[in-house]
Amino acid sequence: MDNSGLPQNSLVSVQNLSFSRGNKKIFDDISLEFERGKITAIMGPSGTGKTTLLKLIGGQLFPEQGTIIVDGNNVHRLRRSELYNLRKRMGMLFQSGALLTDMNVFDNVAFPLREHTHLPESMIRTLVLMKLQAVGLRGARNLMPNELSGGMARRIALARAIALDPMMIMYDEPFTGQDPISKGALVHLIKSLNTILSLTSIVVSHDVQETAAIADYIYVISEGKIVGQGTPKEIEQSDSDWVQQFMTGAADGPAHFHYPAKDYVDDLLSTGKRY
């Protein structure tokens, strides 16, 4: 992959990363750059290890090969306490929201503040209400996580992710399973938070339209390789069959509709015995 056109001013830099799970190679020597202040999207079909990449950047998983540099720190060379200090400056929005189910919305957003700061309760209250206001859910502060809709839970999780004013946020499939209105709200939030808080955002998603609408730069990953990269416009006009199939959602193409199997007719005519 030609990296010469990539920005130099990157906050997160993934270099020659390889990672496998069992015998399956999830990443095969890939390199990505995430520029400061920008929204960079990683797209690709489900099961290509997009979430794994976020866990690698967050230091929850170890790569087989390659390095990941976040704000000048080699994530996997840090000592535990240094890694935890770095994580305080990285927010992550999980697909499920990952809210703590035994406390209400307010306490969930206050959780990182209470764990990491010694602020007085009155100031925590002000901060929490500000973060909740930013995601439009100040009125929901007394609800429990099981009373929230999926979209609301994600917004609360977002409020929690920005509670410590991080330098970056990683979004894991923020649009999956959302109705159009929630999707719209999340698209708007990701974009506006990135600008207002001057964050760096990494969005992992397979929702083409929503992601293309807000991303400054897109990487398309498939089978452990980067198959396309560029601004949304460049990606749209890409001449790679693979990228075209993904962006237009064609059922068959370089990515096959059928899971690998033996010949259909042979399979039907065989006795069905297990060998």
């Binding site: 994580r87 990952a98 959780f111 990182p112």
Partner: peptide
């Protein structure tokens, strides 16, 4: 269930052990 719903890994990412 906290593990299954990613609450534990969410905590780790919030730098809480």
């Amino acid at each position: 269930l906290m593990k299954a719903t990613e609450q534990l890994s969410g905590m780790e990412m919030m730098a809480v052990d």
